[in-house]
Nucleic acid binder design. Structure first.
Lengths: 226, 226
DNA sequence: CAACTCATGTGATTAATATCACATAATTAG
DNA sequence: CTAATTATGTGATATTAATCACATGAGTTG
C-alpha cells in the first residue's frame, strides 16, 4: 500500500469531492494505490469483488468472456471508477479489467465505499449519475453494434478512441487488430480489411499502431450510415 | 393523478422500502399513478426527462432509434424502475418505453427522488444496486449479441422471456416477429426461419403468438453454443 | 543476432444472413 | 361483415462477413 493522501488528491472523482475530512481519513486508511504496467490484470472475471477500483491514471480495457471469444466492453480513460457494478451487482466479478497503458489504480474497500453511500447523499448521487451516464453510453454503443456493418463499426471506434481517449486525430491505437475485433464483435481480418480500405481512400493514415484521421467528416458519415 | 398511498403500496421497490413516514408523504404528494394500455407510450426518446418512472404492473419494452431500425433494449416486467438513467444521466430521454401489456406506472418528480438519494442512504444504496445489476445483465446480453449467430440469439431470447417474464415454458410471446428482430438485431425473416427450424425439430411448439418450449435442454445448448 | 513467437495484411473460398418477392393469415377499421 | 392493413412464412438470390491459407513484418528472448 503506497502512502497517499486522498484529501489532497488532485484527481478525485466527482463523488469523492463531496467527502468531508473524516471520510477522507477513512478512505485513506481503507484504500490502496497500486501501479500496473501495460498488459497487467487489474481485476479478473470470476474473482471475488471486495474492492471498488478507481482509475487514477492510465487507460484500461474492460472485458469479459463471450460464447466464442473475448469481448471488450469498453476502454476507460482515467480518471474514472472501474466497475462499480462488479462490486455492488454481484459478489463475483463478471468482467475483467486490464491495463493497456501503465496505470495507477486505487482500490477502496467496498464496505467503506458502501458506508459513504449510506452516510453521504451527495457522494451517492454522484455515483448514481456516473452509473446512469455509463448506461446511456452503453445503450448507444449496444444499438450501434447490433445494426451497423463492419466499416461503420470500425469508423465509430476510431472516432471514439480519437475523441474520447486521446483528443487528437493522430493517436497510437492501443489495441491489437484482434482486440479491435473483440471490441466490435468481428474478426481481426475484417477489421484489417476495413482499415486498409479507409487507408487506400485516404480517409485515415496508418503507420503501424499510429493512426491519423485525415477526413473526419467522411469517417463520421461512414459511422452514421453503418 | 390517481389517489394513492405509497406507504401502503404492496409493490414497493427495494429502495422505497427504506423510506420513512415523512418521506412517504412527500412521495405521495409528488408522484402520480397512470394506467397505460397495450401499445401506449410511457415515455419517449427526445422528450425532457422530469420524472422517474416506476413500473407497478405490466410489461414494457424499452427501445431506442438505431442507425437502421428500432432497437429493443430490454423487456421489463413489473415491479421495476424504468429508466433511472434517462433521468439522471441526461436531461433528455435517450430511449422510449412502451407498454406491451396493460400497465400501471408511477411517475415520481425527479427532484424529490433526488432528495431521497441525498437524505436516505439506504434508499440510495438500493438504487445503486439496481443500476449495477442492470449493467451486469446488459453486459452479458451485449456480449452474447455480438458473438452468437441467429439461432443462438433466438434461443436465448425465448429462454429469457420464458424464465424471467412468464416463469412458464408456455407463454404468449409479447412481440411481433419484427420486434423480435429488433431485439436481437436481425430481420423478421431470419427470426421466423429460426423459429420454424426449432418448431420442425420439436424443440418448441408455435401456435400463433403462443410458444411452448418443449426441449429446454436443447434450447439451452443452442443458446450457449451460439 | 538468430530463432521464435505473435501480429498483420490480403487473396480465395465458404457460410451466414439480408433482401427481395410473394402467398397467406391475422388483425383492424369502417 | 368486408375491405384494408399489417403480420407472417418461405423460396430464391445477393451481399456480407467468417474462415482458411499463407506471406510478411515486428517484437522478444536466449
Amino acid at each position: 500500500m503506497l502512502q497517499h493522501h486522498c484529501k489532497d488528491c488532485q484527481i478525485k472523482s466527482a463523488a469523492a469531492s463531496n467527502l468531508n475530512k473524516e471520510e477522507f481519513e477513512i478512505l485513506e486508511t481503507n484504500s490502496a494505490q497500486v501501479a500496473f504496467k501495460k498488459g497487467e490484470t487489474i481485476f479478473k472475471e470470476g474473482a471475488l469483488s471486495l474492492n471498488v477500483a478507481y482509475l487514477r491514471s492510465g487507460i484500461v480495457k474492460v472485458h469479459m468472456h463471450g460464447p466464442t471469444r473475448e469481448k471488450i466492453l469498453r476502454i476507460v480513460k482515467a480518471p474514472s471508477y472501474l466497475g462499480i457494478p462488479i462490486t455492488f451487482g454481484d459478489k463475483i466479478n463478471q468482467y475483467s479489467a486490464t491495463a493497456i497503458e501503465d496505470t495507477s489504480v486505487c482500490f477502496i474497500d467496498s464496505n467503506y465505499f458502501r458506508n459513504f453511500i449510506y452516510s453521504n447523499g451527495k457522494f451517492a448521487y454522484e455515483i448514481i449519475v456516473e452509473l446512469c451516464k455509463n448506461e446511456l453510453k452503453d445503450y448507444q454503443k449496444y444499438t450501434s453494434q447490433s445494426q451497423k456493418q463492419i466499416p461503420g463499426l470500425v469508423a465509430e471506434t476510431l472516432l471514439c478512441i480519437s475523441e474520447t481517449i486521446y483528443n487528437n486525430p493522430r493517436f497510437n491505437f492501443p489495441l491489437t487488430r484482434n482486440e479491435f475485433g473483440d471490441m466490435v464483435g468481428t474478426s481481426r481480418e475484417s477489421v484489417s480489411r476495413a482499415l486498409s480500405e479507409f487507408s487506400s481512400e485516404k480517409i485515415i493514415e496508418i503507420n503501424g499502431k499510429e493512426i491519423t484521421i485525415l477526413k473526419k467528416d467522411i469517417l463520421e458519415k461512414i459511422s452514421k450510415n453503418g
